[in-house]
Design a protein around this nucleic acid. Structure first.
Length: 283
DNA sequence: CGCCAGGCGGGAC
DNA sequence: GTCCCGCATGGC
């Protein structure tokens, strides 16, 4: 148990679409970190958990980071202010590099329920069973396992055209086991260059990995929703490309631009409800 | 049913 | 460098 997490919403943090493997049953969230099957629930600022050491949980949610301070630093205009209110307590999780990279390769041009399904299938097909009392959970499959699996098997996980990308990247990772340390040691621009060398990894996936697995809170991943939000609420021209939007996000919100991005993304339904203008949307 | 999804690779200029 | 297109599958 962690008696005082500070400002924190377990629900928003686990359901906002940064991680895809947690499930809520009743009051309890169930999921896996590494090889540990974890159950958690929250009561006010108390976090109750089982299955892992407290260190693991504290690191996963980066509880030593002062959320109030971060949010204060990005609370720079009325739009983000509203999103900060509506998504209060969302924290950016520190994910494991390979799981994060693989997950976001699977996430390209898919919707969140679909992504969750792909990753669940991938885990139950290739992960290791982790038995815990009643039900069986699975570890996220290692790069080695995926690299040595027949691509036809991978394709059965509804990955579509992404399966060769995941397979090739898994193989690249297997041949380059020090990749994560190298990225962790590199500057953000250098790290980004390294990441886009992997198959299926473009600027957006690279930024998600930098933000969610390497703690580069200044990056600003741009997907279709962030594009719409920035165009509509921050009057960026419809012609603005992803790099331009990312630049604008970083300069507008500063060192924790990635946090701003997550709050806007989490709030996308509110921000875009009633915006019916069928915008070009396809570039 | 049609339209859309936390984009990317590849080719055309 | 920028633009444009196809993409395989499932959710809604």
């Amino acid at each position: 148990m962690i008696p005082d997490t500070g400002p924190f919403s377990l629900d928003r943090t686990l359901s906002c679409g940064q991680v895809f493997r947690w499930e809520k049953r009743g009051a309890w969230w169930q999921g896996v970190i590494g090889r540990e099957v974890i159950r958690m629930r929250q009561e006010d600022r108390i976090l109750i958990f089982s299955g892992a050491r407290e260190d693991t949980i504290r690191d996963y949610f980066q509880l030593e980071l002062d959320l109030e301070e971060i949010l204060q630093s990005i609370d720079r205009d009325p739009v983000i202010h509203g999103s900060l209110e509506r998504c209060r307590g969302l924290r950016i999780i520190r994910q494991q590099p390979w799981e994060c990279l693989a997950s976001y390769i699977c996430a390209t041009y898919a919707n969140i329920p679909g992504i969750r399904k792909k990753i669940a299938l991938l885990s139950s097909s290739f992960g290791e069973p982790l038995t815990t009392g009643s039900q069986t959970a699975f570890s996220f499959p290692s790069a080695d396992i995926l690299a040595s699996s027949d691509m036809c098997d991978l394709a059965r996980c509804s990955l579509g055209y992404r399966s060769p990308y995941l397979c090739e990247t898994a193989s690249m990772i297997t041949r380059n086991p020090g990749w994560a340390e190298k990225i962790a040691a590199a500057s953000t621009p250098e790290a980004r260059k390294e990441l886009v060398l992997f198959r299926g990894v473009g600027p957006k996936v690279a930024d998600c990995v930098l933000l969610f697995a390497f703690g580069r809170y200044d990056v600003f991943p741009v997907d279709i929703w962030i594009t719409r939000i920035m165009q509509h609420w921050y009057s960026l021209p419809a012609s603005a490309g992803s790099e331009e939007i990312a630049r604008e996000g970083r300069s507008r919100f500063g060192r924790y631009a990635g946090y701003a991005q997550e709050y806007l993304f989490c709030d996308r339904e509110f921000l875009m409800s009633g915006i019916f203008s069928r915008r070009p949307k396809k570039r």
